[in-house]
């Protein structure tokens, strides 16, 4: 009986915590535009996450992309060139100009919401 009670308490706490995480715990980001959303979809469809990290998550063969746009040494133009041509390790995906724009738009959105990467993370 005691075991079932402990289980029930943990489970209810989990449900409560989950609902909070789904709402207030994660309400800091701005909302994506539909073009950014499309960029995100392309990011998933080409599985960019297998080589790149956003917020440190993803595969590790390629560089972290969270702040690629605002990074002084990289920036939008550099990202565009990579997307249009590929590089030593990165394949050329033969993306259309619209797809490249959407991806860049998405990366801009991610960058703008990367609060923890800027100043002291506050």
């Amino acid at each position: 009986m005691q075991k079932l009670l402990i289980f029930a308490i943990l489970f209810i706490t989990y449900i409560t915590y989950s609902s909070w995480v789904y709402t207030r715990g994660t309400d800091r980001a701005s909302i994506m535009t539909s073009n950014q959303e499309w960029g995100k979809q392309i990011y998933q469809e080409y599985n960019c996450q297998s080589c790149h990290q956003l917020f440190g998550l993803g595969g590790y063969l390629g560089p972290e992309l969270t702040t690629v746009i605002s990074d002084k040494n990289r920036g939008e133009l550099y990202a565009r060139i990579l997307l249009e041509n590929g590089a030593i390790r990165m394949p050329n995906f033969h993306l259309s100009p619209k797809q490249v724009n959407a991806l860049i738009d998405y990366l801009k959105y991610v960058d703008a919401n990367a609060f923890t990467y800027k100043t002291d993370g506050k």
Binding site: D27, R28, A29, I31, M32, E37, L54, Y109, N113
Partner: peptide, 9 residues
Amino acid sequence: NNNIIRDIT
């Protein structure tokens, strides 16, 4: 899906 922080978390 529209909120990157929520999505990744």
